[in-house]
Design a protein around this nucleic acid. Structure first.
Length: 656
RNA sequence: GCGCCCGUAGCUUAGCUGGAUAGAGCAGCGGACUUCUAAUCCGCAGGUCGGAGGUUCGAAUCCUCCCGGGCGUACCA
């Protein structure tokens, strides 16, 4: 059961006797929270202070009146009033023991009740581009999305995961162009994906070269000139008399100079990139021979979209190999999707979307493009370009329409990095105007994965770090941990353990950070045996299993034995309270779509277990009753950790 | 210019809808292995929560301004 929700329910009833304002009652009942400090009990209600204010009575008096109305005797000791009017609740040990005993026999759900009102969620996450290998940027979307998927589903919601793959864009034009001009037939027979990847990178480099040379650098130079002029003007302007204003001016000048220096650096970097291509004879020759590669790639893409037989055939031939490559990564991560309806799936629906928007008067022509102008936005939402091509805005709208018609979801969640928030603001605003105003549309945004230097995590050469290599390294480093183990006997076992620790480390590191903030990627930290890491969680689990092995415990018999749980020691009780709050942790995750609430909870359980482990001998307990009771606590701890990790997509190991 | 986000201990970070003395881990110092995995545990020290005002019984959390940083901003995704 969800104890917190139940307590709030009881407070709601009690509050109704004191005030008849329903909104107030609901708000005040929400002020029942788990206590931050054990000395204030297990839960606390903070509603007497604001209610006292509202009613013009002393809060302690209100608290007293509230307690008299409150019916929580089955869960709690008599409530206590403390400080200005806090109501402190301490759970009754008998209730705790009974709740845990019930959870112990509930193998399926571990005492977590499904929600009363299940919702339907469409979860959009991962969304890689085929043709480009998955890189570090895909970790967060994939891992957070997968965890939310599992948690929501476990709580009883209907969850439809849909991987919105980029399989129809310019990157395929690059591959097609590359295939037509540069393919190595031997290589593509031997390893199609590797060769397609090479072609993509090669063509991308050529396109990039010309774009840099013809567009980016001239534009940058112009920007530099403008910035220089602006600085000169500032320098020659008369300083304001007002000291504050003068300081402001100085600061602006400083900032402008800094920005100018950045631009110069950028220019140097771009020139170095050009020099690199020009210094490579073969590459330089290819670049010269394919001066129009940028336009040509767009033409290949346009031809594909227009139904050109050759390009279509190539697309159909290449796509399965690209998908298989992606699938290999998902297999390693143990991530699955219900659907993978990529951009191509919506191709034939895009014209209809624009037509409908036009007909409803939402889209209008501006500068030759079809735009939706939205209140509160400076820029319009462009759904069709001057040249007639559609954009991801169009695809995203078509996708919303399809999902609404197909699954009638209550919510569509997009697990996408924070830089796209503007796009989603526009997308959602447009969708609502378009008629989809009765669905929760949420951008589940997340921060950037940074390197040790605090800059976005890149390789030394500045390219994105490949996801496959990242997993390789984590597993390799985890193998060093497995090698140190005394309890692992075969190398096969060490490899399995290393795999679970390594993959788990990456996932857990990601999930344990607040998703909205950036975080620094560090193998050392994520693979540490202490602190809030997957390895520590897995170790905690393995230690419990170790006790069962050593004591030759029949777990099934233990669970069904109906034995009493006794909570005599403080460490036992603290662990028990933590265990009974599993359901609350999951609800918090679901409420804010934040998996780090679950990792925090699991770390709390593991910490409480460590203290229990130190203070309460299990196999050598003073008598059989205590031994059995503690074994039950161990079993529940192990199952809670295992279930929690499972919902985060992380596997446990019996020994490590 | 405008918009969004961030600033918490030396480092990496958590902090729920505003709650009581701001929590962790690393690093530092001091303890605990003939005892269920010491790959661990316990203790100590370390914070004017970027700064200044304000709202409130109560502010890291809400509002205003300032300082510092990131990201985005009409036809890429």
């Amino acid at each position: 059961m969800n104890l917190l929700a139940t307590l709030r329910e009881r407070f709601r009833t009690a509050l109704t006797a004191l005030t008849d304002d329903e909104a107030t009652v609901g708000e005040l009942a929400e002020m029942v929270l788990p206590s931050q400090d054990a000395k204030f009990g297990d839960y606390q209600a903070n509603c007497a202070m604001p209610l006292g204010k509202r009613l013009g009575k002393p809060p302690r008096e209100i608290a007293q009146a509230l307690i008299e109305q409150l019916d929580v005797a089955e869960f709690c000791e008599p409530p206590e009033i403390a400080g200005p009017g806090f109501i402190n609740l301490r759970l009754r040990d008998e209730w705790l023991a009974a709740a845990l005993a019930a959870a112990a026999t509930d193998a399926e759900r571990g005492g977590v009740a499904p929600v009363d009102a299940p919702r339907t969620y469409v979860l959009d996450y991962s969304s890689p581009n085929v043709a480009k290998p998955m890189h570090v940027g895909h970790i967060r979307s994939t891992v957070i999305g997968d965890a939310l998927d599992k948690v929501l589903a476990f709580l009883g919601h209907r969850v439809i995961s849909d991987n919105h793959i980029g399989d129809w864009g310019t990157q395929f034009g690059m591959i097609i162009y590359g295939y037509k001009h540069f393919v190595d037939q031997e290589a593509i027979k031997k390893s199609p994906v590797a060769e397609l990847g090479r072609l993509y990178r090669y063509v991308n480099r050529l396109v990039d070269y010309h774009a840099t040379k013809n567009t980016t650098i001239p534009a940058l130079q112009e920007k530099i000139a403008k910035a220089q002029t602006a600085i000169d003007e500032r320098r020659h302007a008369t300083m304001p008399f007002d000291a504050k204003e003068a300081k402001k001016e100085e600061k602006k000048l400083r900032q402008a100079e800094g920005a100018l220096a950045d631009l110069h650096n950028e220019l140097l970097g771009l020139r170095a990139k050009l020099a690199e291509v020009e210094g490579d004879a073969a590459l330089a020759e290819a670049a010269a021979a394919h001066a129009d590669v940028g336009k040509a790639v767009l033409a290949e893409t346009a031809a594909l979209h227009a139904g050109d037989a050759t390009n279509r055939e190539l697309w159909e031939r290449f796509l399965p190999a690209c998908l298989a490559e992606m699938q290999a990564t998902y297999d390693r991560l143990n991530v699955t999707f219900d659907h993978a309806l990529g951009e191509s799936f919506y191709e034939d629906k895009l014209a209809g979307v624009v037509e409908d928007l036009k007909q409803k008067g939402l889209a209008t022509e501006s500068d030759g493009a079809q735009c939706v102008f939205l209140d509160g936005f400076d820029a319009p939402f462009i759904v069709q370009k001057q040249d007639g091509a559609f954009l991801y805005a169009t695809t995203d709208l078509a996708t919303i329409a399809y999902r609404m018609e197909t699954w009638q979801p209550d919510a569509i969640l997009y697990v996408v990095d924070h830089r796209q928030s503007f796009h989603f603001d526009q997308l959602f605003a447009t969708a609502r105007k378009w008629g989809y105003d009765d669905v929760e549309l949420q951008h589940i945004s997340f921060g950037t994965v940074l390197g040790e230097d605090g800059r976005p995590y890149k390789t030394r050469t500045g390219s994105a770090v490949g996801l496959a290599g990242l997993l390789d390294e984590a597993v390799e480093r985890a193998y060093a941990i497995a090698e140190k183990s005394d309890v692992l006997t075969t190398d096969e076992e060490r490899r399995t353990v290393a795999k679970r620790i390594g993959i788990g480390a990456i996932k857990y590191a990601d999930l344990s950070h607040n998703r909205t903030s950036d975080y620094k990627f560090s193998y050392d930290k994520m693979l540490a045996m202490t602190g809030n890491t997957a390895a520590y969680m897995q170790y905690s689990y393995a230690r419990v299993r170790g006790i069962f092995g050593k004591g030759d415990v029949d777990v099934a018999a233990l669970r069904s034995g109906g034995a009493r749980i006794e909570l005599a020691e403080p460490a036992e009780r603290a662990l028990a309270v933590a265990l009974v709050q599993f359901s609350e942790a999951l609800h918090r995750v679901a409420a804010d779509y934040r998996p780090n609430y679950l990792t925090d909870y699991l770390f709390d359980v593991a910490s409480k277990y460590a203290s229990f482990f130190e203070n309460c001998p299990v196999l050598k307990a003073p008598n059989d009753e205590v031994r059995t009771s503690r074994l039950l606590l161990c079993d529940l701890t192990a199952r809670t950790i295992a279930r929690g990790l499972e919902l985060l997509g992380i596997e446990v190991v019996d020994r490590m």
